[in-house]
Simulated assay, not measured.
Amino acid sequence: MSDELSWFKSSYSDSEGSACIEVAVSPHSIHVRDSKLGVEGPRFAVDADAWSAFLSYAAR
Rank of each mutant, 00 (worst) to 15 (best):
40 E>A: 13
58 A>M: 05
42 P>T: 10
53 A>Q: 06
25 V>I: 15
21 I>F: 02
15 S>W: 09
46 V>W: 00
9 K>S: 14
24 A>V: 03
60 R>M: 12
50 A>S: 12
59 A>T: 08
54 F>M: 00
26 S>R: 14
12 Y>T: 04
45 A>Y: 06
59 A>L: 09
43 R>V: 00
23 V>D: 08
32 V>K: 08
17 G>V: 03
33 R>S: 12
16 E>I: 12
33 R>A: 11
24 A>R: 00
57 Y>R: 02
47 D>I: 01
15 S>C: 09
5 L>P: 00
7 W>L: 02
40 E>I: 11
60 R>I: 04
37 L>S: 12
15 S>L: 13
25 V>L: 13
16 E>H: 15
42 P>I: 07
28 H>R: 13
11 S>N: 08
56 S>E: 06
35 S>G: 05
5 L>H: 09
12 Y>S: 05
52 S>V: 00
55 L>R: 10
33 R>Y: 11
34 D>L: 06
52 S>Q: 05
42 P>K: 07
49 D>H: 13
11 S>A: 10
27 P>L: 09
31 H>T: 06
33 R>M: 12
28 H>C: 10
22 E>F: 04
47 D>V: 04
36 K>Q: 13
53 A>S: 11
30 I>F: 05
29 S>V: 08
41 G>S: 08
45 A>L: 07
5 L>M: 03
46 V>L: 09
38 G>T: 05
2 S>W: 01
20 C>S: 04
49 D>S: 13
60 R>A: 14
2 S>H: 07
27 P>M: 07
40 E>N: 13
3 D>A: 11
10 S>Q: 02
58 A>L: 09
60 R>P: 06
48 A>M: 06
55 L>I: 06
50 A>G: 10
17 G>P: 00
7 W>N: 01
1 M>C: 08
56 S>W: 02
1 M>P: 08
15 S>R: 12
37 L>D: 11
18 S>H: 15
2 S>E: 08
6 S>F: 10
9 K>V: 02
6 S>Q: 13
40 E>F: 12
18 S>Y: 11
5 L>S: 04
24 A>H: 02
21 I>E: 00
31 H>W: 13
48 A>L: 09
22 E>C: 05
34 D>H: 09
22 E>G: 04
51 W>Q: 06
28 H>M: 10
60 R>C: 07
7 W>F: 03
15 S>D: 14
8 F>W: 13
6 S>G: 09
45 A>V: 07
45 A>Q: 15
31 H>L: 07
17 G>S: 03
32 V>G: 08
24 A>Y: 06
20 C>Q: 04
39 V>C: 13
29 S>I: 01
50 A>K: 05
31 H>V: 01
40 E>P: 01
8 F>I: 15
25 V>M: 14
37 L>A: 12
52 S>N: 07
9 K>W: 02
8 F>H: 14
22 E>T: 01
32 V>Y: 04
51 W>H: 04
17 G>M: 05
36 K>H: 10
44 F>P: 06
43 R>H: 15
53 A>W: 01
7 W>C: 05
15 S>V: 10
27 P>A: 11
12 Y>Q: 04
